[in-house]
């Protein structure tokens, strides 16, 4: 407990704000529920191989005598065309989707944030170069660009992540640049300049912390979007490859058996819906909490 006291000594106001934000966030029942769903998904993602009833069914093992069985007490979500337990496979799919989404969002944030902040704060030639570069990327529809890049790099999960990072960064670089431009004109930046703060410090100490709120909101919404895009790429055969139990891929293979085995496509689809919805609701909630206009105690 002593270390927590020491922590409070340094970060008391920040800790207080955090608790207040948590309170505001949880006051909305829908947001509280979505937070719980996401926590549950994270736990599932971490412990998937241990909680799956048939861990060997996740990848290659086949069990053909039980193929395409409807949901029952033995196989909760039914089985696929090779007799593998769908419940185990959908559970494991959570891990794949969350991990790939986190990696994709993290990498693209690492590109967007510095580029946007530098462009917005410095302005001039640097700004011009970065913004024209984003224009080039923005001239393609993002999903089409992802598909083109994934097809060019060859179908695999890593390449799908790369495709998403490449096609998504310009959108948020512009967002952050816009924020930075408006922060740059604020009085406290001028005041910081008047006491001799160098421009590099202005970017990191004054501009970035003030642009971070929309970035956090965007990032949490992005996770939903990236999961959806990865599933779409896998569905088209450009992302994860069999036997990976990726949700989009599961739906793709289920098309053949769609008329006889409704459970095959339904459960991975539900998993995608629930996950994306939960992340979007969380994004909404974070925005409400971080926006001073809607932040009401």
């Amino acid at each position: 407990m002593k270390s927590f006291d020491e922590f409070l000594l340094v970060f008391k106001p920040q800790w207080r704000e955090f608790q207040q934000s948590l309170y505001l966030f949880n006051r909305n029942h829908l947001q509280f529920a979505s937070l719980m769903v996401v926590l549950l998904l994270v736990l599932i993602a971490i412990f998937a191989p241990w909680i799956a009833p048939y861990p060997t069914h996740i990848l290659e093992e086949t069990n053909v005598q039980d193929k395409l069985l409807a949901p029952s007490t033995q196989y909760w979500f039914g089985t696929d065309e090779l007799g593998r337990d769908m419940f185990s496979r959908v559970l494991y799919g959570t891990r794949i989707s969350l991990v790939t989404a986190l990696i994709a969002v993290f990498i693209s944030l690492c590109i967007r944030i510095p580029l946007g902040a530098v462009a917005g704060t410095l302005g001039g030639f640097v700004d011009e170069v970065i913004m024209r570069l984003t224009d080039i990327f923005l001239s393609f529809p993002p999903l089409l660009l992802s598909i083109a890049i994934a097809a060019f790099l060859g179908p695999s999960l890593q390449n799908a992540i790369a495709a998403i990072v490449i096609s998504w960064w310009p959108w948020y670089t512009r967002l952050i640049r816009g924020q930075a431009v408006s922060i740059r004109e604020r009085q406290f930046v001028r005041a910081a300049l008047s006491i001799g703060t160098p421009r590099s410090k202005i970017i990191f100490n004054h501009v970035l912390p003030n642009t971070i709120a929309p970035v956090i909101v965007q990032a949490s919404m992005d996770i939903g979007g990236v999961i959806l895009t990865i599933a779409a790429l896998s569905f088209l055969g450009l992302g994860a490859q069999a036997p990976t139990p990726e949700w989009g891929l599961l739906i793709s293979t289920s098309r053949t058996y769609f008329l006889n085995a409704w459970w095959y496509s339904t459960f991975p689809g539900l998993a995608i819906i629930v996950t994306v919805l939960a992340f979007n609701l969380i994004g909404d909630g974070i925005r409400e909490v971080l926006d001073p206009k809607t932040r009401k105690i």
């Binding site: 009085q187 406290f188 910081a192 008047s194 912390p209």
Partner: peptide
């Protein structure tokens, strides 16, 4: 500066 309301960094 003129306006004390906006001279400090809010975060």
């Amino acid at each position: 500066f003129q306006d004390p309301m906006s001279t400090l960094n809010p975060v």
